[in-house]
Design a protein around this nucleic acid. Structure first.
Lengths: 320, 320
DNA sequence: ATTAATTACATAACTAGTTATGCAAATATA
DNA sequence: TATATTTGCATAACTAGTTATGTAATTAAT
C-alpha cells in the first residue's frame, strides 16, 4: 500500500489490519489445501485443547487472549462439527470442562503436519526478509505492555507543548493573572485566607521588594501559570516556593515542572542554600511534582495557613 | 502472549489480530487525548481527502485498500459529523465527489499536529527496539504480494510430500497398476489405441526385454505413478519416454517430476544421447513438466498414436 | 438507435471479534 | 445461617470490516 508511505506511523493500525486480513484469508485457503474442515479462527482454542487436554472456557480465553464470549462461540461451533465435547465431570456446576473428541484428536495429528509446513514457509520468508516480522511483533507486544502507545504519545505531546511554553519574569501586566490563577485553585479545594489576599493583592510590596521573584508561564503568549519565590525570615530557610498555580486548561504540558525549575534556578542564583514550601496532601499532582524537583518532607514549622498539612524542603547545596 | 511461543508461526494471523486490536484501542484513546471528535477508522479516508482534495468513493477505496462499501459507510458517518460534503458538480451522475468541509479542513490541521506526536512516539519505539515492525510490515506486504503465503505453504507441502515418494524399478507385481494408471488418463482425455494395449498388457515383452525400463512411484508403498523408458529403432533417438501416468489422488506431490527425472537419469546411465516423447497439447501440466526436464519441441516424425499432436526431444549430451 | 455490458454507489447480509448484562452456582461475610 | 459478593458461562447488542447484490447512469457493441 503506497498510501502508508505518506500517512506516516499514524496509520499503523490500519496497516496492521490489512496485513492481518491477507494472512487470515490465506489461512482459510491453506486449511482447504489440506482438506481439513476447519475454520482458522478455531486454531488457538484447538491448539490449547490438543496440547493441554481439558480446560474450562474461561481458562482457554485467558490463555489465548480472547474474550470469554468469543471462546464460548468457538466451542459451540467446534461442538457442532464434533471436534470437542463437554465433560460434565466437574464438581463446580458453573464450569464446563471441554476436551477434544476422538475425531478432534485425529484431526490434531493432521493439523500438526500442516503446522510444520506453515512453519517452514514462514521460516522461508524470515530468511528471505531483512526484517523479522514475527520477532518484531513479539518485541512490540512487550514494549506496548511496558508503556502503552497511548502513554508514549501523551509524553510526546507534553514534550512538544512544553516547548511552546515560555517562562518569563513577572511584570505588572500579569498582576491580575497572578491573583486569578491562584484564587481559582485555592477556592476550589479550600478557601482564600488572609495571607493569600496580602500576597496576591500586593505582589510588589510583599514579594518582589523583599528580594523575591515571581515567574509567569506563557502559552501562546497567554499567562497560564505562575509561581513565586518568597524571601523568608528564618534561620534555616532563605526562600519559600509558594503561590504556584497552573490553569486547568493548560494542564498536561509540564508547566508546573517548568515553573518549579525556574524558581529553583532563581533561588540558586540568589545564593540560597535551602528552599521551603507548604502544601496539602490532597493536591497529589503537586506533591508529586515537588518530589520530582527534589523536595523532601519535613515537619513542625509554624505556618499562617489553615490548609497546610505538609511541609517540604529542598537542600540546594546537595544538588550542586 | 506466552501461547504464541508454543503454537509456532501457524498463529501469525491470531497474533497479528491481537496486536492490531491493542493498537486500535490505543488510537481511540489518543484521539480523545487531543479532544478531537474523530473515529480512528476514519483516518485513512480523511487523510486522502486532506492531502489530495476531492475524490470519488471508489477512488478513495482503491487508494486506502478498503472495500467500496466500507468507504461509503465512513463517508456517511463523516458527513453526519460535518467533516465532509458531497460535491455534485460532476458531469457523470453516478459519481459522488466528496471533499472536506471548512470544519474538516480546520480539523486536519489539528490532526497533523497529532500525527507528528504519534510519529515521534513510534519512532521512539523503533529506536528502542531491535526489530522494526513498521519496516517489517512493509517488507512482508511486498513478499506476500510476490508470492502469497498460500503458495509458499503449498510449495512446502509438495516438498515434504515428495520426500515420502519412493521411485522404484518395475517388478511384475506392478503390472496391473502400470496398466490401470495409464488407462485412467488415456480414456479420460482420448481413447485407448492398439499401441496402448500392446505395451500395457505386455510390459516385459514390449519394453523391458528390448532394453527399456519402467519406474513406479510409491506413496505410502502404494503405486501412484508410472513412467517407461522405451528403446527405439531410430537413427536419431535411442529411447522414448512414454506411458507416464500419475494418479489424480496423488497430484501435487511432484511425482511426475520425480518419475521424469528417474527416466532421464536411467537413459543417461544407458548411454543414451537423445530422448524422444510424444504428447498432446491439451495436457498442459504434462507439457510443462517436459519443458522443466529440458525437452524441446520437434516436428515431423511418424507416430502410431492418433492423440499425438506434439513431439519433443531432450539432448542428453548438452546436459553434461 | 437499440441493446448489452460496465461502472459507481448503496444496501443487505454476513464475519469475527468485542462489551454489556443476566442468571445460576459457589464463596465470603455478617 | 442468611445474605452479599464473586465466578463461570450464555446471550444480546454492538463494531469494523467483508462479500453479494440491486439500481441507475454511462459506455460499448451490434
Amino acid at each position: 500500500m503506497k498510501i502508508f508511505e505518506k500517512t506516516g506511523k499514524m496509520a499503523l493500525g490500519s496497516r496492521l489490519r490489512l496485513l492481518t486480513a491477507t494472512v487470515t484469508e490465506n489461512a482459510a485457503q491453506i486449511y482447504e489445501l489440506y482438506q481439513v474442515e476447519f475454520s482458522p479462527k478455531w486454531f488457538p482454542v484447538f491448539f490449547v485443547l490438543s496440547e493441554e487436554g481439558e480446560k474450562t472456557i474461561t481458562e482457554i480465553a485467558n490463555e489465548i487472549g480472547h474474550s470469554q464470549p468469543s471462546v464460548t462461540k468457538i466451542i459451540q461451533e467446534m461442538t457442532v462439527s464434533g471436534l470437542v465435547q463437554e465433560n460434565l465431570k466437574s464438581k463446580d456446576k458453573r464450569r464446563t470442562l471441554v476436551g477434544l473428541t476422538q475425531k478432534g484428536t485425529v484431526l490434531s495429528e493432521k493439523i500438526k503436519v500442516q503446522c510444520t509446513d506453515v512453519d517452514a514457509a514462514i521460516e522461508g520468508i524470515i530468511t528471505e526478509a531483512t526484517h523479522n516480522l514475527w520477532e518484531a511483533i513479539e518485541e512490540w507486544e512487550f514494549l506496548f505492555e511496558q508503556k502503552s502507545l497511548f502513554r508514549r504519545v501523551q509524553e510526546q505531546k507534553k514534550l512538544r507543548e512544553s516547548k511552546n511554553v515560555q517562562i518569563v519574569e513577572y511584570t505588572p501586566q500579569y498582576q491580575s493573572a497572578f491573583k486569578s490563577l491562584n484564587e481559582e485553585w485555592i477556592s476550589t479545594y479550600f478557601e482564600m485566607e488572609e495571607a493569600d489576599y496580602k500576597a496576591l493583592d500586593n505582589p510588589k510590596e510583599y514579594i518582589l521588594d523583599k528580594g523575591g521573584k515571581i515567574f509567569v508561564a506563557l502559552y501562546n503568549n497567554e499567562p497560564v501559570g505562575v509561581c513565586a519565590l518568597i524571601k523568608m525570615n528564618d534561620a534555616n530557610y532563605d526562600f519559600e516556593m509558594a503561590k504556584m498555580a497552573v490553569s486547568p486548561n493548560a494542564q498536561g504540558k509540564n508547566i508546573g515542572g517548568l515553573l518549579g525549575q525556574a524558581v529553583v534556578d532563581a533561588a540558586k542564583q540568589l545564593g540560597a542554600s535551602k528552599l521551603y514550601l507548604e502544601s496539602n496532601t490532597i493536591l497529589k499532582p503537586a506533591i508529586n511534582l515537588y518530589h520530582k524537583l527534589g523536595f523532601q518532607k519535613v515537619a513542625g514549622l509554624a505556618t499562617p495557613y489553615k490548609r497546610c498539612n505538609i511541609q517540604m524542603e529542598l537542600n540546594l547545596n546537595n544538588q550542586l
